[in-house]
């Protein structure tokens, strides 16, 4: 099969970008989208042009590096997969495919299709952890955790940090990411002591980073390669307001 590509090319974060057109010929429908880009890049290199920069690594949908906006949807037309798990059979012979990087002010473009998502790391640093010293942990079975809670925490923990939620949201809100990260720990008994400070700090950092606000449209959840539920956003809202109220009225040690 053959497809035409409209690819966003941008030299670096300082310069303006624009679309370039390419043709990808003689493709095997069982090729992954990134393998198709490999082929295009190989041709570009052989022609003496500069290949398209795109983020990728594990190519099995778990590292969260790949991040293309394909025909207006993060990670391409299929549901519940990352860009690396999108295959050419999802397109028709002769299609024109528009490929853009994930865009948000909090995610500056590094080059071409590569976006810098360090803002997520910042959020994580402000509270996405349980403070436990290495070696200070009690026996793993000391605290039983019901299977339903463990499974729900696992649903949240499935987040691969790719940023598709931000890319899909018309407001570039990071609520699904933050809610998944905070939600996982807030659900588990291990996360309880720091639950309130966790949500307050993570939300404050998220707000500072320049993400937009959630307008409850759930595009994030629909675009998420792990289909993380917007229910965690609801939980984050609840946890945040209760933490705020508690902060106002809670007794404090001297």
């Amino acid at each position: 099969m053959n497809v035409k590509l409209r690819v966003w090319r941008q030299k670096n974060s300082e310069t303006e970008g624009s679309f370039e057109n390419y043709e990808a010929r003689d493709l095997n429908p069982n090729m992954s989208f990134l393998e198709m880009l490999d082929v295009v890049n190989e041709d570009l290199t052989n022609d003496g042009s500069e290949p398209i920069a795109f983020a990728h690594d594990c190519r099995e949908g778990i590292c969260g590096t790949c991040s293309c906006m394909i025909d207006g949807k993060p990670h391409g037309p299929e549901t519940g997969v990352a860009t690396c798990q999108t295959y050419m059979r999802s397109f028709k012979d002769g299609d024109t495919i528009t490929v853009e990087p994930f865009k948000a002010n909090a995610f500056p473009i590094v080059k071409d299709l590569v976006t810098d998502r360090k803002a997520f790391d910042k959020i994580q640093r402000s509270g996405g952890f349980v403070s436990v010293r290495t070696g200070a942990a009690p026996d793993a079975n000391a605290i039983p955790i019901g299977k339903d809670i463990a499974d729900l925490a696992m649903d949240a923990a499935a987040c691969i940090g790719c940023g598709a939620c931000v890319a899909a949201c018309k407001n570039s809100s990071a609520m699904l990411f933050v809610s998944a990260k905070a939600g996982q720990l807030n659900l588990l008994p291990q996360g309880q002591p720091e639950k309130d400070t966790r949500v307050l700090n993570m939300v404050a950092t998220m707000d500072e980073a320049g993400f937009g606000n959630c307008t409850n449209q759930y595009e994030c959840s629909a675009a998420c390669p792990k289909l993380i539920s917007e229910e965690f956003i609801s939980k984050l809202n609840r946890d945040y307001m209760s933490a705020s109220v508690k902060k106002l009225f809670k007794a404090k040690a001297l």
């Binding site: 949807k73 853009e100 865009k103 002010n105 595009e219």
Partner: peptide, 13 residues
Amino acid sequence: ARQKNYDKQVTLR
């Protein structure tokens, strides 16, 4: 939060 918008964006749900 997104000053430079996409050229193409579809609505999912």
